[in-house]
């Protein structure tokens, strides 16, 4: 499996954000996007997810499911957590499990999968709690638990460590490492050195200078 972007040009309004960017991420690999604020990390991730149509260029996933778009094979975690305050932690995770899991893998018992995802992010004791009572970091962890609640080959993460403490960041890094070692791929925008295995860095500022 390989995610390929060729000669990508992305405009936002009248501004050209990304100009002639090409890269490839193979299965089992994580690509870390770096660069100053406003350089276009979020724009690039939202383009990969299919929300923004590029002005020019091709994005494709070789070896994926041809019936599905790249977005439908991706987990997209943005600045927001997609957590509903009036649902409990387990209900939030359960909804995403039912909603996202159709047809992708049916082998595992959903309840076990949800419990395992919450345990990975240290939320197992809070599962009956309404999400409204969670702290910012706990909400973030619940948002990230979505990555494990349903299996998808591509992870697009936009500053996933925002408001996480060191221990929780390590749990996230472990989740990403598990994901890549089982053949998945990830594109992660971040400002912090995460210490991921099998990761490459793409510096958008350097790329812009070159272009």
């Amino acid at each position: 499996m390989q995610l390929i972007a060729e000669d990508l040009v992305i405009d936002r309004g009248s501004r050209r954000i990304i100009d002639g960017l090409s890269f490839a991420v193979k299965g089992g690999e994580a690509l870390v996007l770096t660069g100053a604020n406003g350089i276009g990390k979020t724009t690039l991730l939202r383009t990969l997810a299919g929300f923004i149509r590029p002005f020019r260029g091709v994005i494709r996933l070789d070896g994926g499911d041809d019936e599905l778009t790249l977005g439908e094979q991706s987990h997209v975690v943005g600045h927001t957590n997609a957590v509903k305050s009036s649902l409990s932690v387990a209900e939030n995770a359960g909804f995403w499990n039912t909603y996202l899991n159709v047809g992708l893998d049916s082998g595992q018992d959903p309840a076990l999968r949800i419990a395992a995802s919450l345990r990975h992010f240290g939320l197992e004791d809070l599962s009956d709690f309404p999400a409204a009572y969670l702290s910012a970091g706990q909400k973030r962890r619940l948002g990230l638990a979505r990555l494990l609640v349903a299996r998808r080959p591509v992870w697009l993460l936009d500053e996933p460590t925002a408001s996480l403490d060191t221990a929780s960041s390590e749990r996230l890094v472990a989740a990403v490492n598990d994901h890549t070692s089982s053949g998945g791929l990830a594109v992660i925008a971040t400002h912090l050195p995460l210490g991921l295995e099998r990761a490459r860095t793409l510096d958008l500022a350097a790329q812009r200078m070159a272009a």
Partner: peptide, 14 residues
């Protein structure tokens, strides 16, 4: 839209 759920719904199977 505010809490980002719509982004995830849009990348879902529906």
């Amino acid at each position: 839209h505010e809490d980002g759920t719509l982004d995830v719904l849009a990348t879902g199977p529906l």
